[in-house]
């Protein structure tokens, strides 16, 4: 149990540092196309231990978001998106539940449920997170076109990176 907590914490730290030191600095401007920003940290919320009490999970997500906000100078925006993501995770899990149900008890990684499940699970939640994030950042739906443009392009970049991350850190599958 303790071992599990330490492992989780180290993963937390690694992803957080990659996000604020590497990905924040990455400038992905192609000509005049300046809408791409990579977010890796949603992965922390997506695969946070599934048996965590929900209230605790929400508060941890809030703290994670706030921590990112300190680095991004955007107090509240990341926090809002992270809390939103943590909140809807349960409903998306229910929506995508396989016929035989989930098996969170044993030491089976959640990725073992299958590739199609994994692909759609990450896609749905990541897209929801990005859309929420850019909406809150713009703070008005007047900029809907811009919000959608940012959401889509950032989504594609983040999605590829997250899949790569899963490929590297879950070699069993």
């Amino acid at each position: 149990m303790n071992n599990q907590v330490i492992k989780q914490f180290l993963r937390f730290l690694l992803v957080f540092i990659i996000q604020v030191i590497l990905l924040k600095r990455l400038d992905l401007t192609f000509g005049s196309f300046n809408y791409i920003h990579i977010f890796l940290y949603p992965i922390l919320i997506l695969f946070f231990p599934f048996k965590t009490p929900r209230a605790l999970f929400l508060i941890l997500a809030f703290l994670l978001g706030l921590g990112l906000d300190f680095f991004y100078d955007s107090i509240g925006v990341h926090a809002s998106a992270a809390v939103f993501l943590a909140f809807i995770r349960k409903y998306i899990l229910k929506l995508l539940e396989p016929v035989e149900g989930y098996n969170f008890d044993k030491n089976v990684p959640v990725t073992a449920i299958g590739l199609p499940w994994l692909l759609s699970y990450v896609a749905v939640l990541l897209f929801a997170h990005h859309f929420w994030f850019f909406s809150v950042e713009a703070f008005s739906f007047v900029y809907l076109k811009e919000i959608l443009l940012r959401t889509f392009s950032t989504f594609i970049a983040s999605y590829v990176l997250i899949m790569l991350y899963l490929l590297i850190f879950n070699p069993k599958n």
């Binding site: 929400l58 300190f70 107090i75 509240g76 926090a79 809002s80 809390v83 939103f84 809150v136 703070f139």
Partner: peptide, 28 residues
């Protein structure tokens, strides 16, 4: 309820942070 409360808190922080007079200390 916790979700709604936390979102409220986030929005409070965002709005507060945009206010020039009360720009807060926690930033980079």
């Amino acid at each position: 309820f916790l979700f709604i409360f936390l979102q409220g808190l986030c929005f409070y922080l965002i709005v507060n942070n945009n206010d020039k007079q009360e720009s807060i200390y926690v930033n980079s």
